[in-house]
Design a protein around this nucleic acid. Sequence first.
DNA 1: TATTGTTATACTCTATAACTATA
DNA 2: TATAGTTATAGAGTATAACAATA
Lengths: 160, 160
Amino acid sequence: MKTPGPDSQALEPVTKVSDATMREFFGYRMKRAFNVVQADLARTLKPFELRMLTCTALVLIVENPGLRQAQLADAMDMERPNLVVLVDELERRGLIRRDRMPNDRRAYALVATAEGRELCARAVAAVKAHEAALLRGVSPDLRAAAEDALNKIERRRPPG
Amino acid sequence: MKTPGPDSQALEPVTKVSDATMREFFGYRMKRAFNVVQADLARTLKPFELRMLTCTALVLIVENPGLRQAQLADAMDMERPNLVVLVDELERRGLIRRDRMPNDRRAYALVATAEGRELCARAVAAVKAHEAALLRGVSPDLRAAAEDALNKIERRRPPG
DNA sequence: TATTGTTATACTCTATAACTATA
DNA sequence: TATAGTTATAGAGTATAACAATA
């Protein structure tokens, strides 16, 4: 005796899509907010022909002249092979140089050129301005709380 | 008269990499924290052979039986072509069905199967538990503040 | 004409194994 | 033997144009 289960019910069309279940997850809210931030950042960096990753690499090289690629990859939480293309791109554009380290000829000392430092400064200023616009409506207290929470999560790393 | 500029200085090796400039950006902190959350989520969903996107799609279909692919894509903030492969995957595994809509034969009414609903419930429970573990150390007040900030950012969308 | 789902394509980000040259 | 950088490759996520079927 086979009665129609819920799978074979006639359905009325969905008018408003609910994501109540997903909204209980912090990760879901983070992803949605991050998508907005990331899209805004991409648009902001486009005039400089930078992306989030290339901009981050450039900033870190400017701030830490002489660091090795392995150090940069570690700081950016990415694998060494994936960093190579980013560094290639920045070098090809004349924004950074790969200098051989005198005492360890396997490694490169990454240094920004004058042009790289100048572009970096302009990009950082633009991002700062766009973030201020994006975060207007979020009070300083609330932003500080959010950053506190994000830092705590970041430092948590894989918990079993 | 060409004196050595800062580019050609001898550099002492970098011992500790500083990201002070990047840390001023909310987007940078978000990305770093999101990477941790995303990695944890991926590990949590692996036993169910789900990823963040397939899990989200499944949850939304379970919660909104009969919704169209275009509605689902809109709810997930993704392009229609990219959703097709996700829905293909869920359908191939027998977790959802694509029913033709009676009044609009262009569209599909997406419905979860019994198996899909059961897997969904187990996955949601697992994610809930893992998030609780990941967020232990973040007080409820702080978490609420962070979610408030994330929601405000999400609702902001592209600001010129 | 416009819309739904689809195909094809391309770009970005990520992850792993294996190689080279140095140490 | 171990490490720094590299190559090659593959899997995901994302974005756009163009198409067939239907409205």
